[in-house]
Design a protein around this nucleic acid. Structure first.
Lengths: 83, 83
DNA sequence: CAGATAAATGATCTGTAGATCATAAATCCG
DNA sequence: CGGATTTATGATCTACAGATCATTTATCTG
């Protein structure tokens, strides 16, 4: 049920959804994260490949966390679908 | 049990550990990811703030996936520790 | 220890992210 | 519809990542 990002486009979508879920404008989020509205817009629309640091700033401002997991690892649900 | 990265330093450590677990040299990984040994070294030692795209390349080459989860979400284990 | 393999790092060059200010284009809402 | 709010973008400048080649420094291993 959690969000998986394989591309910067995924990342942008996830960040945008999270921001909206918290009723924040790009400007709000930018302020919280110490960035600029322009930058938030660019990242959400993946109009430019952000730097990792910047993404960490956004994630922190949104109370999100990055988990790194083996790609092959199947979820309980996946297994149930198969067996 | 999965790895959590909050900083580029965390990321570097996780990537290095994953690479070693798969018995790859920095040069091997660089080749797989279409990067340079120098770049892999820089990122693993967090000697420089990488770009997101580059990290995605490394994760893919290592068969790893990025999950984005709410920070506050506690694991079953955390709860057990408290209650 | 010596030789081999791996990792760190120097130097240069190009491309581009983010800062910054400003405005255009969308979207919302009464 | 029309005004307000939000998002997308234009332009410029600085900083720095990644490409590329080469070399030094660790780390292994027989």
């Amino acid at each position: 049920m959690d969000q998986i990002a394989r591309t910067t486009k995924d990342l942008g979508h996830i960040l945008r959804a999270a921001r909206r879920a918290q009723n924040l404008t790009q400007a709000d989020l930018a302020a919280r994260a110490g960035l600029w509205q322009r930058t938030v817009s660019m990242i959400e629309t993946s109009a430019s490949g952000a730097k990792v640091e910047t993404v960490f700033d956004l994630l922190a401002a949104l109370d999100l966390e990055l988990h790194i997991v083996p790609r092959s690892k199947m979820s309980r649900d996946d297994l149930e679908d198969i067996f």
